[in-house]
Design a protein around this nucleic acid. Structure first.
Lengths: 272, 272
DNA sequence: GCACCAACCCAAGAAATACTTATGCCGTGG
DNA sequence: CCACGGCATAAGTATTTCTTGGGTTGGTGC
């Protein structure tokens, strides 16, 4: 073990003092274990084995040959970039256990705060302040353009691009709470108050309503990548700023290999 | 645990450096274990449990609430004082496991030397040098008077005591090797060479031979306590020195509680 | 909004522990 | 008889570990 002989002697003496028993008998050619010594050796071997097991497990976690990372993502990400990222992770670190929890950004942040998720995939619309609960940090990982979604055959569906002001008299289908707020702000800037008739944060539901001509709406590209109802037409609105995607985790969690790997994978899935 | 807070912090930092992973995440109201931290905690708990088990076992051995002591004893002791001692030990330390190995003194010493017995019960006749193998120590624990054994009806059986010189023309039954040597030395001192016809270190055999009138012999009191053939008469020989009983163990074994207890018990069994 | 408090970190020094070097003893074997 | 293997002891040094006395941060109560 790279120790000198007196070091061993002193350890032994110390052990014997503590045990209150002789552990070895000194004999002509070396020492011989006493009954107590043999008993202690069994325990010592077990302890050494356990220590090694602990070190092995720490190594495995550090080298991503094990461990778990829990992702909280909003639906349209959970249907697009997150599966892509999970696929990347599966090839890079086959033993890493990745778990997905579906949650809209506010709840996703709560999950991370509560320690029930390691990483949240969130978004913020342009103009919305991107704030995270204290103790968490967020890193932007990409942008997601917002598109206008019209029923096929809508008056403006023929043009390549559409100006918001041309839609002042349309009926609207809104999305989640924050998306609705964003929509209202945009329309206000364009000089009108949108006539919101329905609301659903489910992009399949929203597209069904739109396809039936019950209104028009705005959906991010990710949602349209996840699902595109053939009854709707997608158009760009010049000047419409994309929403920003973020990854949020505990301030210190960036040092956890599993979290780092997940962050990298999501980033790579968004911008290959 | 009686530690100040920085001490804990430093230990934690050290552990994290060694593991290469964060073990806790610092949060508003205290820390929270990471996955690695939880994994390590499981190992730590197991280690602590094992350590306690080891300490408990050492304590049990030190307090004689367990453990084994192996006695090597010659037959006449094994039939008398050793069972008495074992009985004492059983009441004093019910959990102590006492094991008896039968062996004449020379082999008994070998057993102790070889580590196959912890304690040897031996004897030495007066005048015989009491030497133990180096590394072992012997403590005298009592004396065992040697008696003359005659067939009932022997010419000298009528007297209360008998002088050796009156037995110069008798036929003799000898015992073990060392007893035979002792007998020859005694007779030589009395002025004759004994006519040894038979030899047996088994005191039952020897008494059977004597009872049949095939010779006379000398037996220690312990042997006669163990067994007394009604066909023989026991007489004292004035001036005949007793043999000395010894306990022999490894030089350092005196510090082993089980051995100490056994020594005490044998001594108490001999001289209550 | 401010002060306060809890919980943690950091740096430096003090205390305790662990290890090494140097030496000695004992028993064995050539 | 001497040399050597194997261990013990003593003293000095190195290292580790703990405490003391500072901060910082973020939540909480007035």
């Amino acid at each position: 073990m790279g120790w000198t002989q007196p070091a061993v002697s002193q350890h032994l003496r110390h052990l014997e003092r503590q045990a209150g028993l002789p552990l070895v008998l000194r004999r002509p050619r070396g020492v011989r274990l006493t009954e107590a010594g043999r008993a202690l050796l069994v325990h010592a071997d077990a302890l050494a084995t356990r220590l090694r097991a602990a070190a092995d497990e720490m190594n495995a976690l550090a080298r991503l040959e094990g461990g778990t990372v829990r992702l909280a993502a909003f639906p349209s990400a959970g249907a697009t970039v997150v599966p892509a990222a999970m696929s990347l992770l599966a090839t890079r670190h086959p033993a890493l256990d990745v778990r997905l929890l579906q949650a809209e950004p506010p709840e996703a942040l709560e999950l991370v705060t509560a320690g029930e998720a390691d990483l949240a995939v969130t978004f913020a619309h342009d103009g919305q302040p991107f704030t995270v609960p204290s103790g968490l940090v967020g890193v932007p990982v990409g942008q997601d353009p917002v598109r206008l979604v019209l029923p096929n055959g809508h008056a403006r569906a023929g043009a390549a691009t559409v100006d918001l002001r041309d839609l002042a008299s349309d009926r609207w289908i809104a999305g989640c709470e924050r998306c609705t707020a964003h929509l209202e702000r945009l329309c206000l800037a364009a000089g009108f108050t949108p006539d919101i008739r329905h609301g659903s944060d489910d992009y399949v539901v929203a597209q069904s309503l739109i396809a039936r001509g019950l209104g028009i709406g705005m959906l991010p590209r990710l949602a349209l990548e996840a699902f595109h109802n053939p009854g709707v037409t997608v158009r760009e609105v010049p000047g419409l700023r994309p929403r920003t995607l973020h990854l949020v985790h505990h301030r210190e969690a960036g040092r956890i290999p599993a979290v780092r790997a997940a962050v990298r994978a999501v980033r790579d899935a968004i911008a290959p």
